[in-house]
Design a protein around this nucleic acid. Structure first.
Lengths: 167, 167
DNA sequence: GATAATCTTGACTATTTTGCTTGGGAATGT
DNA sequence: ACATTCCCAAGCAAAATAGTCAAGATTATC
């Protein structure tokens, strides 16, 4: 599991696509301008997204990209892993051919955590993110803290007191 | 929020410290050998971990590092953010001074997700990881799947069917 | 059919980050 | 004194990131 700005770009672009769903194909040029990402870089990212069928493309004038599935069937984990696919992640790759047991133990501990994060991100769909944002905007307008329930999702937004997460 | 091999090294090293808790200070040379990380790189990582009081150091012969707090009070999110601290994360940093509303919207969507991941990682302690691993080893020895309950933690290990997470 | 819009692909480059080395210190137990 | 350890800073090669450039392929529209 890796989580860098590359994945952020991909998720951001996919969210842009989600927001303009129903308007026909969206050109990369539009996304590039709206999200401040270079066109050619987007092309590279979308090449990988297309291979995973996360987006569908239409060529020619009036063409562009659209979501490969509906927004509630595309999960954040998929998007991130699609653009991140690199070969060797762990030092003792896959197999447990480490020298001593000690090393394998902590490596397993890490891969355990990695799997947890992965499973977590694979439960959050693009639609969830959009719903969540919408709900929070309403709540903010009403001047109250987040207290709403979100049926079908067990992700709580509470207790993130210490996390800068972007500053 | 960022999650790279650098953070993995830090978490792995901290787990190593946790596993040898009670044996007095652990030298970086030991960790370097056990985990296959270069000594000087560990020094750099531990310099940052020490600034956040995640580890405590003892100089001189017989010295080394130990956990700054007990393993159930150190959270994975802290460890990762300690070694990752870079300055500019988002393009429209902190403030919402983007050009058009569209861009700010999707940026907020991303930072929302980022906060969720952060909150998630800040609920997982080093002790949790060690417990989880121990439990799973026992379960594996008994030939049954994971079905145990983990009081105080609401993290499920189920439904990670599609995640390669390191292959 | 010509043309323009758009995806598609590959090569190339600059910048940043990783991971590591080197080389020196400073503290401290023996 | 001395060896052991933490501490710190500079530098450096390899990789990843982010982007540019250039050439195509497809297709709607005139």
């Amino acid at each position: 599991m890796k989580l860098t700005t590359k994945g952020r770009y991909a998720v951001t672009a996919m969210l842009d696509l989600s927001l303009h769903f129903g308007e026909g194909p969206i050109t990369l040029a539009d996304i590039a301008q709206r999200q401040g990402i270079s066109l050619s870089y987007l092309e590279q990212l979308f090449s990988r997204l297309r291979k995973r069928s996360l987006v569908a493309s239409v060529r020619g004038p009036g063409g562009g990209y659209s979501l490969g599935r509906s927004a509630d069937e595309i999960y954040v984990g998929e998007v991130i892993s699609a653009v991140d696919e690199n070969i060797d992640t762990t030092r003792c790759n896959g197999a447990h051919n480490c020298q001593n047991n000690e090393r394998c133990l902590t490596h397993d501990l890490w891969s355990d955590l990695s799997n947890q994060i992965y499973g977590y991100l694979n439960k959050i769909s693009l639609q969830d993110l959009m719903d969540r944002q919408a709900v929070r905007e309403v709540a903010q307008r009403q001047g109250q803290q987040e207290q709403e329930t979100n049926p079908g999702m067990d992700i709580s937004m509470s207790d993130m007191s210490s996390g800068p997460a972007g500053a």
